[in-house]
């Protein structure tokens, strides 16, 4: 296992922008004084004349992006998740969401895996915030391959897209043949006792949990759910009916993110036990990302415990 390649999805974002920049010149990239951190700086280096730094003014950047899109051009704007989804929430809602403008919001440094910067920068609320905006597509890629594929798909989508990227290097799970489709979950392992629906960096943890559960004789279905909105109802209903117990796994508050989205489908369509693995309505704090993921219960062993709890309640 030592040879597993790891890449932070913020790097995938920067590299993906360059790939798209090589193919098309009909888009602008905006940043808010974080180009080196969000990795739009990689694009800036390749295409300096197509990258605009808005300075430390995220609300203005988001509304500028809306104005660019209103002229019929494509635009990507990027800052940390805390400032894109949090500080500029109302600009996203009213300037981008309400007119349904095709702006791509590349939000990096999401979740507690931001690490040492601590709670003020560890945004665990963005999926919930963005999910409440009508017409908004919300994507949380699991690895390098999926992050680049999601970015590409966003360029072909006629409407606003929020994509969440991470700072921490995470295992590359998918090969180049992986097919990403907005709104589609992907079954990675079949199983019959319980279903683990994971998103973002928790997908790698879920695959590890599959092996741990298997060793204990528990058959777990593993579903990767990159699109939080629109959520893939069919794959959730099928899992609920066939396994009767679901665990959701996300690096996000337990309120309103993947757990909320999956539960909303389950209670309406196919009642089943749903147990969350998530940040439990608390702020993070400074520390190395791996230590924080341990502390906040976002590991394979936590998914295993949740799976057993879910099965026990069936």
């Amino acid at each position: 296992m030592a040879d597993i390649k790891k890449i932070a999805t913020r790097d995938s974002f920067g590299n993906g922008l360059v790939e798209l920049g090589n193919e098309r010149d009909d888009f602008i990239v905006l940043d808010a004084d974080l180009a080196a951190a969000t990795k739009t700086g990689i694009f800036k280096k390749a295409f300096p004349e197509r990258h605009y730094d808005c300075g430390i003014a995220e609300q203005n950047m988001v509304s500028i992006a809306a104005g660019i899109a209103a002229t019929g051009k494509r635009v990507v704007c990027s800052t940390f998740a805390m400032f894109a989804a949090g500080r500029a929430y109302e600009q996203v809602r009213n300037s981008i969401g309400y007119p349904h403008l095709p702006v791509i919001i590349g939000a990096t440094h999401a979740g507690i895996s931001v690490g040492e910067d601590g709670a003020t920068h560890q945004c665990c609320e963005d999926l919930a915030l963005m999910r409440t905006i009508p017409g908004m597509t919300v994507i949380n890629p699991a690895d390098d391959t999926e992050a680049k594929a999601a970015l590409r798909a966003a360029f072909d989508h006629d409407g606003p897209v929020y994509i969440r990227f991470g700072r921490l290097a995470v295992p590359v799970i998918f090969d180049e043949d992986y097919k990403f489709e907005i709104g589609k979950g992907v079954e990675l392992r079949d199983g019959s006792d319980v279903t683990v629906i994971a998103t973002g960096l928790m997908v790698a943890e879920a695959l590890e949990a599959y092996e741990l559960l298997k060793a204990e004789g528990i058959s777990a279905r593993i579903i990767n759910m990159p699109t939080i909105k629109p959520i893939d109802k069919d794959i959730i209903v099928k899992a609920a009916k066939e396994t009767g117990a679901i665990v959701t796994a996300e690096e996000h508050t337990v309120i309103g993110g993947l757990y909320g989205a999956v539960s909303e489908v389950v209670v309406a369509e196919a009642p089943a036990i749903v147990v969350p693995v998530a940040v439990n309505d608390v702020y993070g704090h400074s520390g190395p990302a791996p230590v924080l993921l341990d502390e906040f219960g976002l590991r394979a062993k936590d998914i295993v415990a949740a799976a057993k709890a879910a099965i026990a309640k069936k």
């Binding site: 602008i28 605009y52 609300q59 203005n60 988001v62 509304s63 500028i64 992006a65 809306a66 104005g67 660019i68 899109a69 209103a70 002229t71 051009k73 635009v75 600009q91 300037s95």
Partner: peptide, 10 residues
């Protein structure tokens, strides 16, 4: 800000 975005786009 949206007007600024339009002017920048132009």
């Amino acid at each position: 800000s949206a007007a600024v975005g339009m002017a920048l786009s132009a």
